[in-house]
Simulated assay, not measured.
Amino acid sequence: MVKNKSLKRFLAILTITGLSLSVVGCSNNSNNKSETPASSVEASNFETIEFVYSDGAKDYDVKVDSPRKKAVTLSQFMTEMLLALDLGDKMVGTALLDNHILPEFEEDYKKIPELEVGEGHSISKEAFLATGADFVSGWDMSISEQTTGSPDELIEKGITPFLAASYKSDATIETVYEDFELLGKIFDVQDKAKEVIDNMKDDIKVVTDKVGEVKDENRVKMMVYDSGEDKAMAVGSGLANNLIELAGGNNIFSDQNQPYINATWESVVAENPEVIIVTDYLAGSPVEEKIEFLKNHPALKEVDAIKNDRIYVVGLADLSPGVRNSQVIEKMYGYFYGENK
Rank of each mutant, 00 (worst) to 15 (best):
E181H: 09
L182H: 11
K111H: 00
F162N: 03
A127N: 15
S124F: 07
T131E: 07
E104V: 03
K90Q: 13
S75H: 02
H121K: 12
L183C: 10
E119F: 07
D134V: 07
E181D: 13
K125Y: 09
S166M: 07
P113M: 00
S66D: 02
M81E: 15
T73W: 08
E153R: 09
W139L: 12
H121G: 04
T148F: 00
A84D: 14
H100P: 12
E116N: 11
S124V: 07
G88H: 01
P103W: 01
L102Y: 10
S66Q: 14
F77K: 02
A71H: 04
D152M: 06
A71W: 02
N99M: 06
Y167P: 02
S75E: 07
K69M: 13
I173G: 05
F77A: 08
T172E: 12
L85A: 04
M78A: 09
L87Q: 01
L182K: 13
L83A: 03
E145V: 12
D134W: 06
T79C: 06
E114P: 00
S166Y: 09
A130Q: 12
E104A: 06
W139V: 03
T160I: 15
L87F: 01
L102C: 03
K69Q: 15
A95P: 03
D152N: 13
G149I: 09
I101L: 01
D179A: 05
N99I: 06
Q76W: 01
T175I: 11
I155M: 08
D152P: 06
A165W: 05
K110F: 00
E106K: 14
K157G: 08
E178P: 05
F77M: 12
L82M: 04
A171S: 15
L154S: 06
F135Y: 04
I143M: 08
L115I: 00
A171V: 10
T147C: 12
M81P: 12
T94E: 14
S166G: 11
Y167D: 14
K110Q: 10
D108T: 00
A171W: 08
A171P: 07
K185Y: 08
T175G: 13
G132Y: 05
D108I: 00
V117W: 05
T172N: 11
F77S: 14
F135G: 01
L85V: 04
D179M: 02
V176Q: 10
I123N: 03
K111S: 02
A133N: 05
S150K: 11
L96C: 05
K110E: 07
K125N: 13
